[in-house]
Amino acid sequence: MRTPLAALLVATLFGSSALAQTTVTGTPAAPDAKSSQQSGGQESVTRPNTDKTTPNGGTAAAHGAVQLEKGANSFTEGEARSRLEKSGFKDAKNLMKDGDGIWRGTAMHDGKQVNVGLDFKGNVSAQ
């Protein structure tokens, strides 16, 4: 008699797991859904800007038009130097992070010393 009772118990336990499954139909996000930043929900996460570094820099004037953004900057001084070098600025000196989280200093570009900055997204600016 124990065998049919055990079989019934096992069938009941495993058979009920199918009832807990759900199915998603339709589009998960509404077409007019807003990002969390727009809706006032959880703050959005901004990753460093790794795809807009200009190799070998172009001109210093091109970097002059870049607007640096305030924010918590996680770049180390060595990473800031590396970003500047990838953008065509050599011999970076006096690099210090300011109160807005922007690395600032001087560097050489086309034989001239220019003021440079690097924000938390990795954007490079020169003046």
Rank of each mutant, 00 (worst) to 15 (best):
E85Y: 04
L8D: 08
G58K: 03
H109M: 11
G99T: 14
K112Q: 13
A126F: 01
A65C: 00
M1G: 15
T22G: 07
D91W: 00
D100N: 15
Q113L: 04
A33T: 09
G40T: 06
S16L: 10
V24C: 07
A30T: 09
S39M: 09
E79P: 05
W103E: 06
N115A: 14
G41A: 14
A92S: 14
K34E: 12
S82N: 14
Q21S: 10
T25V: 13
D91V: 03
P55D: 06
L19Q: 12
L9H: 02
T27W: 06
G41S: 11
D110V: 01
S74T: 15
E85V: 08
F14M: 13
L9C: 11
S35T: 15
W103T: 04
S16R: 11
Q127H: 09
E85W: 01
L5V: 14
L13H: 05
S36G: 08
G88K: 03
S17P: 00
M96C: 00
F14W: 12
L68P: 09
A18K: 10
L9S: 10
L95P: 02
W103Y: 06
T76E: 09
F75R: 06
A62I: 01
S35A: 09
L9R: 07
A80E: 10
G40N: 05
H63W: 03
V114A: 01
L19W: 13
A72H: 13
R2T: 13
L13S: 09
V66D: 01
A62P: 00
N73P: 03
N73W: 04
M108C: 00
R83N: 12
S17M: 14
R81V: 13
V114E: 08
V24M: 12
Q127W: 02
A61G: 03
I102T: 02
F14E: 10
Q42E: 13
P31W: 08
Q38S: 10
K90V: 00
L5T: 11
A30I: 03
T54G: 00
G122D: 05
L8P: 00
K34Q: 15
A30R: 14
G26Q: 03
Q21N: 11
G101Q: 07
T54R: 07
Q127Y: 02
L13W: 11
A29T: 10
K93I: 04
Q127F: 07
S17D: 10
A126Y: 02
N94I: 01
T3H: 10
